[in-house]
């Protein structure tokens, strides 16, 4: 499976430093986006640590035999990688005062053999644009999303809520984080977007869809344009976008596995 990848991150126009981090490893089919927070100067440490831990875990790990929690072995391994990132952040944070209280969101996608495994914690998101349209693949672990699911507020109200920045789950907060997993079958031409809330709070889903459509075949162009759009709309937060496009036919993807 050949992948065409674009990635971009921006500090935005308000924040002094960029606490977002991303990983794009097309050769592994692994893509991760993290939005760090907290600590004296440690949000960026947490997000970076998460990314490194996940990459190491996937690179050296062996998927469990058989399905777990109803998910494919690869998806289960991605979930374990995120759990190990959580432990790594807690271990680092407990070691010194400078890093105390740091945490991060995470959204990770691992593509292989026609399937994308998805894992997320917090309000960083994954989207897909395929033959069936444009769809969000993750539900934020945030207070407003919980309120929407419970029917207390509607989607429209949630976009205006002052409580949008309140998370219910994040890495680095508790030793037993619940990682949400998902799976998606992918085909040539499908586009996937991973991003932080610095993008999704400034650019609507309809605009995300339009940009992916317009920059089909140019994932880097899509990322750059999305970042620019978020900054033009105020850029109050760090902004990160990773766009992955599945190339070629399934047949060529099948053969490319033997070339590695």
């Amino acid at each position: 499976m050949r992948l065409k990848v674009g990635a971009a991150t921006s500090v935005g126009r308000v924040r002094p430093i960029n606490e977002d981090a991303f990983l794009a490893r097309p050769e592994l089919g692994l893509f991760v986006v993290c939005d760090g927070m907290g600590g004296a100067a440690a949000g960026e440490v947490a997000s970076q640590l998460a990314i490194e831990t996940i990459a190491a875990h996937i690179n050296g790990g062996t998927p469990p035999a058989g399905t777990q929690r109803g998910f494919q072995p690869r998806t289960a391994l991605l979930g374990q990688a995120v759990e190990s990132a959580n432990r790594a952040i807690i271990a680092r944070a407990s070691g010194d005062a400078e890093h105390a209280g740091m945490g991060t969101t995470v959204v990770g996608m691992w593509l292989a053999d026609g399937m994308a495994s998805i894992a997320h914690v917090g309000d960083s998101r994954a989207y897909v644009s395929n033959q069936e349209g444009f769809e969000g693949l993750t539900a934020d672990h945030s207070l407003v999303e919980a309120q929407v699911q419970a029917g207390l507020i509607d989607r429209e109200q949630s976009l205006k809520s002052e409580q949008q920045n309140i998370l219910l789950r994040a890495l680095g907060r508790a030793p037993d984080v619940l990682v949400e997993l998902g799976e998606l079958l992918i085909a040539a031409g499908d586009q996937m977007l991973l991003c932080t809330d610095g993008l999704t709070r400034m650019v609507t889903d309809a605009e995300l869809e339009a940009v992916l459509q317009r920059f089909r075949g140019d994932p880097q162009g899509a990322c750059d344009h999305l970042i620019e759009q978020a900054n033009n709309n105020g850029g109050p937060d760090n902004i990160t976008a990773v766009v992955v496009e599945v190339q070629g036919t399934r047949l060529s993807g099948f053969f490319s596995r033997f070339k590695r």
């Binding site: 924040r15 606490e19 939005d35 760090g36 927070m37 907290g38 600590g39 949000g43 209280g101 945490g103 969101t105 309000d123 672990h141 207070l143 919980a146 419970a150 207390l152 920045n165 309140i166 998370l167 219910l168 789950r169 994040a170 907060r173 508790a174 619940l178 809330d197 109050p236 937060d237």
Partner: peptide, 28 residues
Amino acid sequence: IGGTMFLDTEKQKNLLSGLDRGRPSQVY
């Protein structure tokens, strides 16, 4: 916390008191 806030379990329970009443294991 740097713009993004995190609710620990105790505070979640208070804020989501209506959501999780009677099914505490489902807070998350």
